[in-house]
């Protein structure tokens, strides 16, 4: 609720002050290029082969859960959706989206948790838990190769604007915005790392640095903390809005989940 007040504040201030001037500014947003293109050949090779891509442990965990009954209703995902290959094809590419029942944005993790709590009589899974990462990765895999395409119109619009504002705001002790690195410096070296455009078409990714599969929101928190900025909670409305903006910004990029990143 507090966020919503904030959001409305941000949006109306944005309309009054910055949206106007931003329209006149040259849009710095580059033509979308996947993070894959910025990776070293060895990292790309890990992603290219499903048998060596370590994220496939998460995919397998998700695949097992898909047909495992969970919760008091005795249902599994497969009870209602049958084969994920058909029922889930293209779904992940449309998230996050506005959900009128929730009155806000829902991303793939959130939708899966809704299934558990509303349809199956189960507890919601924790963000970054193996089970939720597994289901998310398994569902996202069914969209591999399909273009990211989210809806930012109608009720989703204010969230989109808030996410864009977040992306362009300098923060943290280092006083940098997401845009300064991921629009302005893509392709350049930040010490050992080649900076990519910060696209999210590969998520959940397997991140070698973490030795684990990871969500989009975990990556946002990592970048925030690197700037010595307070991260937001995974699943928070701020990160959902940021996720919507980023999904739009990478519109048309083929979904790659599960990608492998440094």
């Amino acid at each position: 609720m507090r966020f919503l007040v904030l959001l409305v504040g941000v949006v109306s201030a944005g309309l009054a002050a910055s949206a106007f001037s931003r329209a006149q500014e040259a849009d710095p947003t580059p033509t979308p290029r996947s993070g894959y293109e910025f990776m070293a050949p060895q990292t790309q090779a890990l992603q290219d082969d499903d048998f060596v891509n370590p994220a496939f442990f998460s995919v397998e965990a998700g695949e097992r859960l898909w047909s495992t009954p969970m919760g008091s209703e005795g249902l599994s995902c497969a009870s209602c959706h049958e084969a994920a290959e058909t029922s889930m094809a293209g779904v992940a590419a449309r998230y996050p989206q506005y959900d009128p029942d929730v009155g806000g944005l829902v991303n793939l993790e959130g939708r899966i948790n809704q299934m558990l709590t509303k349809e199956m009589g189960a507890e919601a899974l924790a963000y970054e838990s193996e089970a939720l990462l597994g289901l998310t990765t398994y569902v996202a895999l069914q969209s591999r190769g399909m273009p990211m395409a989210v809806d930012i119109e109608g009720p989703a619009r204010p969230y989109f604007e808030a996410g864009r504002d977040y992306f362009f705001t300098r923060r943290g002790q280092l006083d940098l915005s997401c845009s300064q690195c991921h629009d302005g410096l893509a392709g350049q070296k930040l010490r050992g790392d080649t900076i990519s455009q910060g696209q999210i078409n590969g998520f959940p990714i397997y991140r070698l640095l973490w030795n684990s599969t990871a969500s989009r929101h975990r990556m946002f928190a990592w970048c925030n903390t690197s700037l010595r900025a307070e991260p937001e909670a995974a699943g928070s409305e701020t990160y959902l809005a940021l996720e919507l903006y980023l999904a739009w910004r990478g519109g048309g990029l083929p979904m790659e989940s599960p990608a492998v990143r440094r």
Binding site: R171, G172, Q173, D175, L185, R228, A229, E230
Partner: peptide
């Protein structure tokens, strides 16, 4: 892009410990 190494005003959302 260069951070100010000796300035504390005008920053947003600084991590609590800094």
């Amino acid at each position: 892009l260069m951070p100010s190494y000796y300035r504390i005003e005008g920053l947003t959302g600084v991590l609590a410990r800094y």
